[in-house]
Simulated assay, not measured.
Amino acid sequence: NDTSQIYQILPDRLKSSITHYFDRFSLKERKRVKSVSTDLNSHYQGLVRRYFPNAKLVVDRFHIVSMLTRAFNQVRVAVMKQFDP
C-alpha cells in the first residue's frame, strides 16, 4: 500500500530555506519519518540526518542511473582512446 505524497515544494534549494521549513515540525513528529528520498547533494544528507534521526536515507533512482551512465561513458571513452580510429 503506497501512501507516498508530496506535501510541499519549497521555492528554492537554499539550506536556510530548508532548515526554516523543517524547524516548524517538532522532533517527535520528525522522528516518525521512516525514509527520505534525495539526490546526492551532501548538504541534503546532513539535513536528513539532523532533522530525521530515524529515517532511512534513499538516493532517488534518477540520480543513481545518471551517475552510472556518466561513469560508464567515461570508461567507454577512455577505452576507445586506446585504439587507432
Rank of each mutant, 00 (worst) to 15 (best):
N1M: 11
N1A: 10
T3A: 08
Q5A: 08
I6M: 14
I6W: 13
Y7L: 12
Q8H: 08
I9D: 14
I9A: 12
L10Y: 12
P11N: 07
R13L: 00
L14V: 01
S16I: 09
S17Y: 06
T19S: 09
H20G: 09
Y21G: 00
F22E: 02
D23T: 03
R24A: 05
L27K: 04
K28F: 15
E29N: 10
E29M: 12
R30N: 01
K31M: 15
K34R: 12
S35T: 02
S37A: 12
D39M: 01
D39G: 03
D39C: 06
D39R: 02
N41F: 06
N41T: 07
S42P: 13
H43T: 15
Q45Y: 02
G46C: 00
V48Y: 10
V48A: 12
R49F: 09
R50E: 14
R50P: 10
F52I: 04
F52L: 08
N54R: 01
L57C: 01
V59K: 04
H63L: 03
H63F: 05
I64L: 11
M67W: 07
L68H: 13
T69H: 11
V75I: 15
V75Q: 14
R76W: 09
R76G: 11
V77A: 12
V77W: 13
V79W: 08
P85F: 15
